[in-house]
Amino acid sequence: MKIELTVNGVVRTLDLPPLVRLLDVLRGPLGLTGTKEGCGEGECGTCAVLLDGEPVNACLVPIGQCDGRMVVTVEGLAVDGAPGALGRAMAEHGGAQCGICTPGMMISAEALLVARPAPSAAEVRHALGGNLCRCTGYERIVDSVLRAAAARRGAGEVGP
């Protein structure tokens, strides 16, 4: 099936079997390995990407449903090729340890911060409810997102 979609701002034209998972298309033909596979069944959230601005699990999205749509992966959150406020906060404040959950955490956090630039800790926890982390105990992730939100408000930095 011919599929045209925009990935991180670049239009990509693909010809692929339509039920192949968006996750495998990103990590395979598109070479975007920032998006990880954890459970492969919607439970862990490490494969999260933005689809038309909303966070979804790329392991549960058939590529055939992506024609004409816009995908943003963790690579697309970079600002001028370097981590933005969110990526920096995760690195500097212990929000990432082994890092497997980090791409999904950042995507869910990005969706939240675009909608609510000054979220409460409870809102951050709710937004990250579908993202599991086996390392940090979550506190530092929530803290990193709150710090990133503050930094973005200060710097006037907006998401992609």
Binding site: G42, G45, P55, V56, L60, A127, G130
Partner: peptide, 12 residues
């Protein structure tokens, strides 16, 4: 609707 799975499941 806020209690189904998490936000990534709710979006789909």
């Amino acid at each position: 609707s806020h209690d189904i799975g998490g936000p990534t499941i709710q979006a789909r």
